[in-house]
Every structure is written in structure tokens, then in C-alpha cells.
Design a binder for these strands. Structure first.
Lengths: 209, 209
DNA sequence: ACTCTTACTGACTTGAGAGTTAGTTGTAGC
DNA sequence: GCTACAACTAACTCTCAAGTCAGTAAGAGT
């Protein structure tokens, strides 16, 4: 007699709740936008009552903040690890890094989070600032250091590393926006891994001495 | 006795109203987000009452739609004109087109509109679709045709034109997002014209046979 | 001066959703 | 089994904003 406990699961599971709430919130914030999402709906999707959300999160904004925190932590350390470990010519490292970003864009919910940050950064500057300081502010210099290493060893010709990084990363931003804003309304999906590979090819070729 | 008519300007000016309302709406939508903006505030910034907005626009969504319409019209025709007129090697044309986009990003409110479209495309698919069909759907093929022309004449090596276009345009998307989402919260502004020039340099160099 | 149309407004209705509170239920420890 | 606390909820308050409507005033035509 497996009753509906698997379906409803109305139990007390304080450990699992925050993650479930965050997942539901991300789904709905993404679909309907932050302001337009009702906490009531987040709650019912997460399988509890609205009031319970307030046991775990201070208010609606802190839900969004928690989502951004989680995403930031997950990504930056991985990338900086890849860079620290690497030895030898940097061109393969660039390909590897772009491949990593492409995979995150294609397979994780990072693009949705990025879209949310972009959408809400004016209305919730704390969130925008956090992203700026912890993702962009760490990610861009990381890439920049790779380009600079290439220039220092003579593998690349001397170029402005700041502008070059933006040219390298730009297509990935495009891909993220595309995936979270346009694919859901019917735009044809495109192969992000192929884009990343092509992007790396072009830049590496453009940087030959 | 110049009464406050210059300040309040409470007159009947049906011709000027729509444009004034749209300008006020763009300001506030950009700052606070679409859903979080009160029509009451749009009205008072435009110098009339909320009810008057409904004389000119069906509802709040159609305000946003009108903004996107206006922006789309303004830009695409200019770019396609530039392409149709051009003769000779396409590399200078690419530089010119990127310079044009950079100027729009730096000087017009296009980035704010783009951010709004990105933010609202899920909740208001009509708006996302319109942008997709009329801006992206025309702009990308336009660029693509330029790359293809270069390949056909042997000026460029053969590459996948679709991927290449995205690599070319990506940095401009990054610039737009940066300007509308991050600069207002304190990110250091960057020189978009320089980015466009560098982007064009890199791509043209990468496409040498 | 007097209409009639058009631009416009103030006050309202309606509905919604964030956050709160008082109370209920699961369950760990005895 | 009982107790006490932690997890949870139903039902509430309170504020806020979209959209409406009945009425006011500008100004063109006569």
C-alpha cells in the first residue's frame, strides 16, 4: 500500500527544503520574471506552503540572492583551478576554458541566472554588485591572465588583453542570452559547443604573431 | 505674471503626448523593470494623468511593444542601406558596420531596450518574437551575407558564416548588457568604439586565407 | 455667446501578492 | 505514551497598482 507519500511527500525534511525551494524559484523566476512570480506558486511547486519559505529565507529578494550565490561558487573555482594547473602553450587552455563555459551554458541553468541578474541588477543593486564582484570581476581577469601569459611567452602577438578578453567572451554571452531569452519563445537552438570551438579558433588565429 | 504654465504645461497637445509618454516609460522601465514600474509614475513624469495614457495606448504591455517597434524601425534600415551601397573589399564594410552598432550602443538607448526585451521575452512572447523576427532575424543574415561575399571573392578563407557572425556580434551584445545592466550600478564604463574596432581587427585577421 | 467634440483628470473598483501570526502536526528524546 | 520543540500551514492584514468611468475643461466651428 504505497500511499501518496511519494507524490505529496508532506513530511518534515528541513535539510532538503532550501534546495527544493531554490529550484522551484529558479524555474518560475526564469519563466515569468522575478517581480511577476508569486511566492505562493514557488511554494506550491516546492511542495510546501508560502509561510514555510519564510522559515528558510528572509524575503523574496534573498531567494534570488541565494540563487546567484550558489551559481557563483560553483563556477569560478573550477575555472581558476583549470588555469592554475595548466602548463605549456596557452592556446589549448583557451579552447578548454571556452569549452567549459559552453558546457555550463548548454547544460546548466547558468544562462537563466545570468538573465535574472541582468534583468534585476538595477532594481536590486546588491545582486548586480555581487555578480559583478564575484563572477565578472574574477572571470575576466582570469581569462586576461591567460592571454597575457601567451603574449609574454611570444605565443601570441601583443594586443590589448582587456579588449581581447571581451571579444573572446562576448559570443558566450550571446549564447547565454539566446538560450534563456529566445529559445524558449521559438528561436532555433544552436550548437553552443561548436560556437565556442569556432570562437577559440578565430581568436587564436587572430593572435598569431 | 508668468504663472506655472511653463513648469506644469498642462495643455492639450495630442501630437506630442505619445512620444513623451514613451520617453518617460523607457526611463522608468529601464530603472525599475517593466513589472515594477507604475503607470502612475510614467504618467507623472510625462506630465499627465494615468488615465490619459490609456487614450494613447491600449495597456501597459503595448507601451513596451511601441518602444520596441520604434527602435527596430530606426536601426535595421540604416544597416541594410550601408550594405547595399557598398562595393569593393568587405573588410572595411565590416569595420563600418561594427562602428555603427557601437555608436548605437554607446549613444542611443538601444541597450536599455535590448535589456527590456531580454527580460520580458518569456512573460511577453509577442515582444520577444517581434524582436527576434525584426531585429535579430534581419540583422544576423545581413552580416552573414557580408561574410559570405568575402568568402566568395576569396578575400576571406572559407569558414562557417553563421558561427562567424555570432563571434563578430557577440562582443557587441556584451557591451550592450554591460552598459545597461552593470554601468548603472557602478561598473567601470568601457570604450565601446575601441572594442568594436578591436573586434573587427581580430575577426578580419582570423579570416585571412 | 453657444455648442460640440476631443483631450484630459480624480476618484473609484478590483484583484493580487508580500509578509505575518496564531495555531497545528510530526517526531526525537525520555 | 508523554512532552517539548521544531517544522509547518491556513487564514489573515495591508499595501499597492492596473484599468475604468463619470465628469470637467479646452478650443474649434458657428
Amino acid at each position: 500500500m504505497t500511499d501518496q507519500s511519494e507524490i505529496t511527500a508532506r513530511k518534515r525534511r528541513p535539510e532538503a527544503r532550501p534546495a527544493e525551494i531554490l529550484e522551484a524559484a529558479l524555474d518560475l523566476f526564469t519563466e515569468r520574471g522575478f517581480k511577476a512570480t508569486r511566492l505562493e506558486d514557488v511554494a506550491s511547486r516546492a511542495g510546501l506552503s508560502k509561510a514555510a519559505i519564510y522559515l528558510y529565507f528572509k524575503d523574496k529578494t534573498s531567494l534570488l540572492m541565494a540563487l546567484v550565490h550558489a551559481m557563483a561558487e560553483a563556477n569560478i573555482d573550477l575555472a581558476s583551478g583549470m588555469i592554475a594547473q595548466h602548463e605549456g602553450p596557452v592556446a589549448p587552455l583557451l579552447r578548454q576554458l571556452l569549452g567549459f563555459i559552453a558546457a555550463r551554458i548548454a547544460q546548466s541553468r547558468m544562462p537563466d541566472l545570468m538573465k535574472l541578474v541582468i534583468s534585476e541588477s538595477r532594481a536590486h543593486p546588491e545582486i548586480g554588485r555581487f555578480y559583478l564582484d564575484n563572477v565578472i570581476g574574477k572571470g575576466l581577469p582570469l581569462f586576461q591572465s591567460v592571454i597575457e601569459r601567451g603574449i609574454a611567452t611570444g605565443e601570441f602577438r601583443p594586443v590589448d588583453p582587456r579588449l581581447t578578453v571581451k571579444c573572446l567572451v562576448g559570443p558566450m554571452v550571446l549564447a547565454a542570452v539566446w538560450k534563456s531569452a529566445f529559445e524558449p519563445i521559438g528561436a532555433e537552438p544552436f550548437d553552443i559547443a561548436a560556437l565556442a570551438a569556432h570562437d577559440a579558433d578565430l581568436i587564436i588565429r587572430a593572435l598569431q604573431p
